[in-house]
């Protein structure tokens, strides 16, 4: 049996995959068709490892989050089997990993923007690598609808702008109402005009 090992390194992240060709599927000698294991090292956090299902879940979540983030949307994403969750955490991003083993506490990893892009690049390299003949369970990069973007972009600033505008309008209107109108002046003007005629 041929055991193959491929590694993807991007600064703070390094992803290593091991597997073998799927001869029944016509894979060549250097193509991984069956994934046996994978390990992910992120600097400053414990070593992650698992099976294909776990990697699928991780890829789903990270790639969806990055797709949203590039459109200016910061939103929580959870994988289909609830194994991986990523959510905004201040300026950073919180990655929550649930183990399928019983008695193992969920692992929390805080990633900054540079680490998120490193991890995304690693997963990008993997999904477009021709040395892998594996069908990944991930969503394609699709444009969002206008409605989705408008509802998900954090418009706190826009909302506060509208609120301030309403307050300013009410205050100025009430000030204008307080100003007394000079009715006498208008009357004199009108009488003068009639006299000249």
């Amino acid at each position: 049996m041929i055991n193959l090992n491929y590694k993807f390194i991007q600064n703070s992240s390094s992803l290593e995959l091991a597997g073998m060709p799927d001869v029944s599927n016509g894979d060549s000698e250097d193509t991984i068709g069956i994934l046996s294991s994978w390990t992910l090292k992120i600097i400053g956090s414990p070593l992650l490892e698992g099976e294909k299902v776990h990697l699928d879940n991780l890829m789903q979540v990270i790639l969806q989050y990055s797709r949203s983030y590039i459109s200016g949307i910061r939103k929580t994403f959870t994988s289909t089997k609830n194994l991986v969750t990523i959510s905004p955490f201040g300026v950073s991003h919180k990655l929550l990993l649930n183990s399928t083993r019983q008695g193992v506490k969920p692992l929390e990893i805080i990633l900054d923007d540079s680490e998120l892009s490193d991890l995304t690049r690693c997963l990008d390299l993997l999904r477009f690598d021709s040395r892998f003949n594996i069908k990944w369970d991930i969503n394609p990069d699709i444009p969002f609808s206008k409605k989705y973007i408008l509802t998900n972009i954090s418009n706190s600033r826009n909302k506060s702008n509208f609120f301030y505008a309403v307050i300013i309008f009410i205050v100025t209107c009430s000030f204008l109402l307080l100003i007394p109108t000079n009715n006498k002046f208008e009357k004199i003007e009108s009488t003068k005009q009639t006299q000249s005629l």
């Binding site: 990055s66 990008d124 206008k146």
Partner: peptide, 26 residues
């Protein structure tokens, strides 16, 4: 900062498809 984030997430083939998707809407 937003522009730098967009650039960092648009590197390579995967990044290009991500960037392209962000420039359109359904």
């Amino acid at each position: 900062r937003e522009l730098l984030i967009i650039l960092s997430l648009s590197c390579g083939k995967g990044g290009a498809s991500r960037l392209k998707a962000s420039l359109y809407h359904q």
